[in-house]
Simulated assay, not measured.
Amino acid sequence: MYAVGNRDPFSGADVIADGIMGSRGGVPVVASPMREQLFDLRTGVCLDDPEVSLPVHALD
């Protein structure tokens, strides 16, 4: 299970929870519904722009 921030860093909208989850090359990802950037659910890093990321929250 993964927990990342809900705010899309590109648009500023709280929409990541509405994104489509899947995988790319075995990496679990979520696609932003705004501009369809893919984010690694394990690290929060954007696969389309590695300089941008979502915050990742630890699950206890």
Rank of each mutant, 00 (worst) to 15 (best):
P9V: 02
C46A: 15
G5K: 07
D40Y: 02
V29W: 04
M21H: 11
D40F: 04
P55F: 00
V45Y: 01
P9R: 03
V29H: 04
P55L: 02
A3V: 13
D49P: 06
L47G: 11
S53K: 15
F39A: 04
N6E: 10
S23G: 13
D49E: 15
M34T: 05
A13Y: 11
V56T: 15
A3S: 15
E51Y: 01
G26D: 12
P55H: 03
V4N: 06
G19I: 07
A17C: 13
R35V: 05
L38T: 05
V4C: 09
I20L: 12
P9L: 05
A17D: 15
L59D: 05
D18Q: 14
R35H: 14
L41A: 00
S32N: 05
F39W: 11
L41S: 01
Q37E: 00
A58G: 06
E36H: 15
H57N: 00
I16S: 06
V45K: 00
A31N: 08
D48V: 08
R7D: 00
C46M: 12
R7M: 08
L54K: 01
V52H: 02
R35Q: 12
R42L: 03
A13P: 00
A13E: 12
D49R: 10
P28D: 09
N6V: 07
V27S: 03
D14K: 10
T43L: 02
A13F: 12
G5W: 07
E36Q: 15
P28F: 06
V29G: 08
V27G: 05
S11A: 13
M21G: 13
D14N: 14
A17R: 13
C46W: 07
T43C: 03
F39I: 03
Y2H: 15
G26W: 12
L59I: 13
P50V: 04
H57A: 01
L54S: 02
N6Y: 07
V29E: 04
V15H: 01
T43N: 01
S23C: 11
